[in-house]
Design a protein around this nucleic acid. Sequence first.
DNA 1: GCCAGGATGTATCGGCTCGATATATCTCAT
DNA 2: ATGAGATATATCGAGCCGATACATCCTGGC
Lengths: 212, 212
Amino acid sequence: MSRRRELLEFAVLGLLHESPMHGYELRKRLNTALGAFRALSYGSLYPCLRELVGKGWIFEASGEQTGLGSGIAELAVGSRRARIVYELTADGKEHFQDLAESAGPASWDDEEFDVHFAFFARTQAEVRLRILEGRRSRLEERLANIRTASVRNRERLDLYTTALQRHGEESAEREVRWLEELISAERRGITGTTGTTGTTGTTGITHNEPLA
Amino acid sequence: MSRRRELLEFAVLGLLHESPMHGYELRKRLNTALGAFRALSYGSLYPCLRELVGKGWIFEASGEQTGLGSGIAELAVGSRRARIVYELTADGKEHFQDLAESAGPASWDDEEFDVHFAFFARTQAEVRLRILEGRRSRLEERLANIRTASVRNRERLDLYTTALQRHGEESAEREVRWLEELISAERRGITGTTGTTGTTGTTGITHNEPLA
DNA sequence: GCCAGGATGTATCGGCTCGATATATCTCAT
DNA sequence: ATGAGATATATCGAGCCGATACATCCTGGC
């Protein structure tokens, strides 16, 4: 399965933790809130949902009328547009946790990082710290490359290329500072639980109050 | 033709302005310097090159030995690894200019902007200004969205989502300031040529000294 | 009251891209 | 001189994007 697809599955499972949702709604959320998926198409989403159902991680909870139980005549047989609402299964929740915890170097780069970060509230403190630090080291690598490149080409590039590089450099520096704040906030929140995974909670997930 | 493909063709034509190049080299440049194409594959590049050849915008100038004319025995027939070097045709240069000048709203968004900007040194002053201002307005739209969204959801989002949004907001603000500097630099450079396209140069391209 | 336009909603298809892989040559350190 | 790794071209299948089709719901203007 492609990396992109795995990321999509992860994001869908994450969003469904909030509440059951149908495809259209999921797509809107994926296209706005999450950094990746800015142009996710139905041609990707619907097959993905079908596969998640097949794997037993979500199920179709359609038929349920949405909220406002006011109306009586809602049942007019055959009418009432089909609206397939998806809901997480227990297995689905478990799988989401597995994916969140197994975050590796792949999640240091742009797209993956945004998605993982978006679900930090549902991620173990230790994993949060690992991802933040991994992301930082990735950015510092990038900075090192930019800097050696700009030394190597001193005076040989036109002004626009130089301007673009400087902009990239400053953006990366800003993100590093942002990460540093988050990391030290995490550290303050963690002390006392560090090391041996705390045994609070039912699932082995620590969830100590995130970010003060 | 897909937007992505058009962008790739534009970038290839732009890079070949510097000097003739073969595929492998083109890919390296596309993957590092240009913002888009960070993961461009050969499966995209080679078909693109073939099409550019078919359209008469580039041609295969292979056989030419690269630089160092030192060696004598270079001609050993049949040996000497095939190394297809591509070179721009006159039509190719012309087409690149057409593409550069026709930059529309599509080039205000992330990927396209980076590529267009990368070739600013070869772009008319008026077009440069149009792209910079378009990009700025696009970012200000985005900022407006972020801000209304963050008002609408005041207190309803977890700390991480808030942090991510603030980071996005500050990044956009920074880029706007960066653009503003470039725009005013362009304005200083342009005064005197503004309005009626200057008639300097052979091709109608103004090219007044970029960025002071 | 009614109709047009737009948001909501599910679904599919073709063209193209990505990632992996195969193959071969050149270069350099040991 | 031998192997590791960079250089170099090429292709293939899985799967994504963008467009499109189709249907329903809601709203504002007249």
